[in-house]
Write a protein that binds this DNA or RNA. Structure first.
Lengths: 199, 199
DNA sequence: CGTTCGATGTATCGGACCGATACATCGGGC
DNA sequence: GCCCGATGTATCGGTCCGATACATCGAACG
């Protein structure tokens, strides 16, 4: 999950850890409150070991802009740049639409956040998969509320009702997005200003 | 988190792992889809080591009812019973209203699910703490939407909007619950049929 | 009658992610 | 001159998840 998110952000521009976390928080803030450094830094090191990202400025760009002068001490800010292999990996992860994509809030949120760079067919598959998942959950809650309501106290009942309401709302939201997706009226800016693969 | 949930369920009646998971799923199904055995069984063992629960039927009850006859093979079903210390521990956890109580969905959900056995003052503190947390999140989303809207693509924007909507809805829900709580018109069954401490 | 299949049931392992914590630098206000 | 909050990198222990394995039981199906 974090892997996709990090690659996606570094695909837009090189960044160091702190900035990465801030961007992660604002872009995915709707689904998770904040990403912990305890997961961010280990993941960064793993991505680097796998060759998807590398330390330092991108090879094409001169590294002299402004990231170096600030580090007077020993442990300066470390800028991470996505590699060519990393970009391929990103596309691969983007295209994946397995259960891990819609099972968790976070998983769906991250994929959705990069929908502008996902091809339309995959977008549709992810939205429909997510809808199916939420519908299952909704049915489960309805069953509990209709069949076992008398055996639960009022607070638990209220919790279920609130959960059911949220499910119904999300399903309606997804329906709308799916409909938009089908007739191309996507709420998305035309790809003119974002040429899909700028490398 | 799991600790509180398990103690709460075992407080109602002794149970084995499988049944525990099912109850967990229906009672807390509004917040988490299902609890994994990978967390359930280790937690059960930890609780047993700490002395909060014990294997076998409760000391007061004859264990002959129906849990023993089914185990013909070697590894039969293991019934867990809450101990007296476990009940104290449960009360202690119930009364806690720290950040861990409202920070995560799951944490809040579990506490809320046992509100019928929580004292009114704690209920109010937890609801208000949760509201505060969700309001902060809501403000963060509003800031992003008003200040950085033009720098985000339409999908990310839509995600934020949906998140903001969910936050506003939850705040309203909490307001209602808090109001009910304050003038005693709680949607809760009077404590007559559940004498708080039946041991 | 055997067999297969789904529900019931216990259990472990690796991995993802979090929360707390530590430490270091820098700019600005007092 | 000093402290404080924002910036910045990093680790550690712990919680929980997902996949997997394995065993029993009753019912369905040939």
């Amino acid at each position: 999950m974090l892997e996709l998110a990090i690659l996606g952000l570094l695909h837009e521009s090189p960044m160091h850890g702190y900035e990465l976390r801030k961007q992660l928080t604002t872009k995915l803030g709707a689904f998770r409150f904040a990403i912990s450094y305890g997961s961010l830094y280990p993941t960064l090191r793993r991505l680097q070991a796998d060759g998807w990202i590398s330390e330092g400025a991108p090879p094409g760009m001169p590294a002299s802009t402004e990231e170096v002068p600030l580090l007077t001490g020993k442990r300066g800010r470390v800028v991470y740049t996505i590699t060519a292999e990393g970009k391929e990996r990103f596309q691969e992860l983007l295209g994946a639409a397995g259960p891990e994509t819609y099972d968790s809030e976070a998983g769906f949120g991250v994929h959705f956040a990069f929908f502008a760079r996902t091809d339309p067919a995959t977008r549709l598959r992810i939205l429909e998969g997510r809808r199916r998942r939420v519908e299952e959950r909704r049915e489960g809650l309805r069953d509990v509320l209709s069949r076992a309501a008398e055996r639960l106290d009022a607070y638990t009942l209220e919790l279920q009702r609130h959960g059911l309401d949220a499910c119904e709302r999300e399903v309606r939201w997804l329906e709308e997005l799916i409909a938009n997706e089908r007739n191309g009226t996507t709420p998305q800016p035309p790809s003119a200003q974002d040429p899909e693969r700028s490398s």
